[in-house]
Amino acid sequence: MSRQPKPSVEVRIAEHARHLGFDAVGFCRAELSDDDKARLREFVDQGWHGTMGWMKERLDQRSDPQALWPDVRSVISLGLSYAPDSDPLATLQQPDRGNISVYARNRDYHDIIKGMLKHLAQFVVKQGDGVEVKVFVDTAPVAEKPLAEAAQLGWQGKHTNLVSRADGSWLLLGEIYTTLDLAPSEPRAGSCGSCTRCLTACPTNAFPRPYRLDARRCISYLTIEHAGPIPHEFRPLMGNHIYGCDDCLAVCPWNRFAQAGRQAKLAARPELVAPRLDELARLDDASFRALFSGSPIKRIGRNRFVRNVLIAIGNSGTPALRDVAANLTSDQDAVVAEAAQWAVEQYP
């Protein structure tokens, strides 16, 4: 009886990745296309990165994996689905409630994916003599989306995020850089076609043109990365978004093929789906830390978060919330106090 041929190293790695819980896996050379490099350069040259100075400071390493690690030969790109099991935009119809981005309604995905990547990396190093690896999950100058596209996990949609035929716009990404010389994944079809739903869904018109994002206008950037007062021109457009924004992701037609994510640690905590704005506004530092322990929201701190909540209160049109905002006009944090005063002034 003849023996079955041993699966290729790529097949072995992919099978183990799925065994660990990853929903997508692919391989590519450790290099970016000229088009991807030009897109990154334009993003910085136009100032679309806003205050995210690290985008500019380490652009060379982001544009060239070998500038970050000269020995890297291949990239293993991994995707973990966080597709919701209900309409993520339903909360937008409840003005006295806050809308939290789907990925942030439970545990911090950085911690989850990094643990999974480390387990997979241990498997990868056993696939040859002297194999070396480095793991990344949004914590280093790594062009995650272009590499995921090159590894055939999907394609960068007009909203600049990755779109997958199987998981829609709901994939969290991680990478393993390795000295292994891996065969690139076979091309897979898929495109946005003539669809522009993501572009028209954006409340703040953050897309200068398809496939380009001005982060300075993006609600996710404004509520998470932006320190200090949020520009007044964007406040009425933010609605009740208090951490991140899924508007452009949620309307993608490819989402109809996505099954709800399987990772229990990413399943929404009930108290973080449509949380009450009045309760969130009353959080002090200790109660904020307790509520968001283990959550990515904890990273931005109480003051920035309550600033976001107060803007949502100002947009709510709910008279009962006026007094909640008024109580914070003398908050010790100047940014919180200013946002509270703005919220009060939105009521006649």
Score class of each variant (00 low, 15 high):
N106C: 07
D108W: 01
V72L: 08
K145P: 08
G115R: 04
R107V: 14
A143P: 03
K134W: 09
G115P: 09
V75P: 00
R58P: 15
S81G: 05
P95I: 07
A140S: 07
S101M: 08
S77I: 07
K37N: 04
D60V: 15
Q127P: 13
L120F: 05
L80K: 01
W54A: 05
R41V: 12
T51L: 12
P70Q: 14
Q93G: 15
S74C: 02
H110Y: 06
A140R: 00
Q122E: 13
R58A: 15
Q94R: 12
K118V: 09
K145R: 12
V44K: 07
G53W: 10
D35L: 14
E57P: 12
D85A: 13
V44R: 06
H49W: 08
G115M: 05
D71I: 13
D85I: 09
D36L: 02
L80R: 08
E57V: 11
T51P: 12
K37D: 12
P95L: 08
L68E: 11
S74R: 03
W48E: 01
A67C: 13
K56L: 11
G47W: 06
M52G: 02
A143Q: 05
N99H: 14
E132P: 08
G128V: 08
I112S: 01
W69S: 07
D45A: 12
R58T: 15
Q93W: 11
R41Y: 09
T139K: 13
L80F: 10
S63H: 11
E42F: 12
R39C: 14
V44A: 12
K145M: 11
Q93A: 15
N106M: 03
D45G: 10
G115K: 03
L89W: 04
R105N: 02
S74P: 05
E57M: 11
